[in-house]
Write a protein that binds this DNA or RNA. Structure first.
Lengths: 349, 349
DNA sequence: CTGAAAGCGCTTACAG
DNA sequence: CTGAAAGCGCTTACAG
């Protein structure tokens, strides 16, 4: 009685104490925690009971020090601006929590810094695995070592030539089919001169969507396509679009933006220039952020939260050795539906 | 030569190896790392050089195990939806990185879960300190133990009666002056019957803004104020506002929303009901998310990124024992400017 | 100023 | 199935 101090503020128990309480040894407790065989059923039950009663959780540090699993998942992002990274992280954390782990996040906007962080994550022995959100493509010039912790890419796929990266996991979206859907929609609506506002240049999705855009244009005779670089943010888009319209005689009749933020910047410029949307010029985004619904922006729905979950799932699959050599087990590609709204809702012309 | 394998994939060095290379002892290296006195200048320089050359970084786990500083900062959020949490986290991480630490983030939407996570953070010995972003106010019914790791509140302030919480750090925003500014602006614009759409009920800012709103109304004779509950998300706002206007004979002539998302939902409803903004009804938000500029929404600018930085700064101040007993050293309150835009831009009526 | 030694809480061969 | 023992990489009294 007297010895039982305020329960909330006691120092947490450790392995030895649990073992003592269960009348067993450290080794047995350790085996039970890790769900390993080699413990008599009654002993196991007794230990599990004690663990539950005392809310015992093995120390991160004792574990980490032995070089085995630490329960820490490293997540590396570049920006928080678009909401993409934020939602993906929430998805990852949902899955990591389920497995009793912790999410270590960091942000590194610059390429050098990004790669340095990845290196230290992957070879530092602090995390079980690392998830890279929309990494700079230059990353693939680095090589992955055989003893490196597993890396999963979210929204990127390593190029074929990057051989050391082939064993990495990757969750991507089906840019090709979404782009086809989007271009087809615009064509149906009677738009004929499409301009694609490309995203940040060193991002996988940017590069892939440019390729898919050009391929899609080729499939539609009579439709022209044009890629505009340099408009990767809302602000830049305002400038680039303004300048383009000011200096070009022939206007595009639809702007197909890399993401919703860019599309919204474009809409602002068109509004300021009193150019009718969707009649004179149509506008599409990509992502389907909450405000796109409000703005009536036609866009492609990107399942960010689901991407996060999927990415973490694949990481755990690799950690548990369940992926084997199957390439398919380490890759996932998600579909993205089209959301047709006001900014392309013109009558066929 | 032959022994020098591919540098990128080597196992990282440890303390002993650094000591050997520097021709010194573990103890000396440890002291240098921690910037402690008791090392001869030349020895210190030699060690620092070796550390730099080999990019040595002390292991998180070795450190953590000794029960001293781990370099890990725990961050607990509830949702990512509004962009608030995301931006705050980025600010925190910026500051944590500066100090060579790592940010451990987790999300717990439910109250029980939130408190359980906080408890395990604060007494588990895994993190040096914890930052709680917009915690549920029920948290203050819990008591903070003297041996608990320091907790810093971001966007919350403990009530006076919660004595054990008085030593906690807190970064808040000046809701009172911002609310005064906002109400004054509306009054100047000729709005007379204000309705405040309150936020999620168990949040400090929600409760404080309701109080400030009511106080502000009292200062303006002839102006009436009314608090509408239940509209904490964009979707809910659409329903609540619609229902309110349908069932009430006397309409408010301005909706003052808890945040921009709520304000945008309100704008959608007004638009759908063909009610003229800002002439018939004015609308204001709070946060100044990027989209509000586009939407022409009058709002209060909340410095989210700065809040994150400030919160981490205070945490480090406590960790370094620099706060002493000064209450002021553990508290910060940030100002929020008014952004007057189209949704209240009516001529004086 | 210096360094040998103990110990933090685990995991993992190893011997019984 | 069981448990004693070594060791992971640090920090911190402690003695010199």
């Amino acid at each position: 009685m007297a010895a039982n101090k305020d329960a909330a503020h006691q120092k947490p128990l450790n392995l030895v104490e649990i073992a003592k309480l269960a009348g067993s040894s450290k080794s047995a407790v350790s085996r039970v925690i890790q769900n390993q065989s080699g413990v008599a059923p009654e002993v196991r039950a007794r230990i599990q009971h004690i663990i539950r009663v005392h809310h015992y959780r093995p120390s991160l540090f004792g574990r980490g020090l032995k070089g085995s699993r630490t329960g820490l998942i490293g997540v590396l992002g570049r920006f928080m601006e678009s909401g993409f990274t934020a939602e993906v992280i929430r998805g990852i954390d949902d899955e990591v929590k389920k497995r009793g782990g912790h999410t270590l996040v960091s942000f590194a906007p610059g390429i050098e810094e990004y790669i340095a962080f990845w290196r230290s994550f992957v070879s530092g022995g602090q995390v079980d695995g690392v998830i890279l959100i929309a990494p700079p493509v230059d990353l693939f010039n680095q090589s992955v070592g055989p003893s490196d912790r597993p890396t999963i890419l979210c929204a990127a796929e390593p190029p074929k030539k990057a051989t050391s990266w082939q064993r990495a996991g990757a969750v991507t979206v089906d840019n090709r089919s979404a782009m086809d859907r989007l271009v087809h929609h615009l064509v149906i609506k009677g738009y004929k001169r499409l301009a694609h506002l490309a995203g940040q240049p060193d991002i996988f999705d940017t590069q892939e969507r440019v390729r898919c855009f050009e391929d899609a244009i080729r499939k539609h005779p009579g439709i022209t396509g044009h890629v505009l670089q340099g408009a990767w943010t809302s602000e830049l888009a305002r400038e680039v679009v303004h300048e383009h319209l000011e200096t070009h005689g022939t206007w595009p009749d639809a702007f197909l933006a890399f993401n919703d933020a860019i599309a919204l910047g474009t809409l602002q410029t068109l509004q300021a220039m009193k150019i009718a949307v969707p009649d004179r010029i149509g506008v599409t985004g990509w992502d389907d952020i909450p405000f796109s619904d409000y703005a009536g922006l036609t866009t492609i729905h990107l399942p960010m939260h689901e991407m996060g979950i999927k990415t973490a799932e694949i990481l755990y699959r690799l950690l548990e050795g369940k992926a084997g050599d199957l390439h398919a087990a380490r890759r996932a590609k998600l579909e993205m539906p089209l959301k047709a709204r006001r900014t392309t809702a013109r009558e066929h012309s």
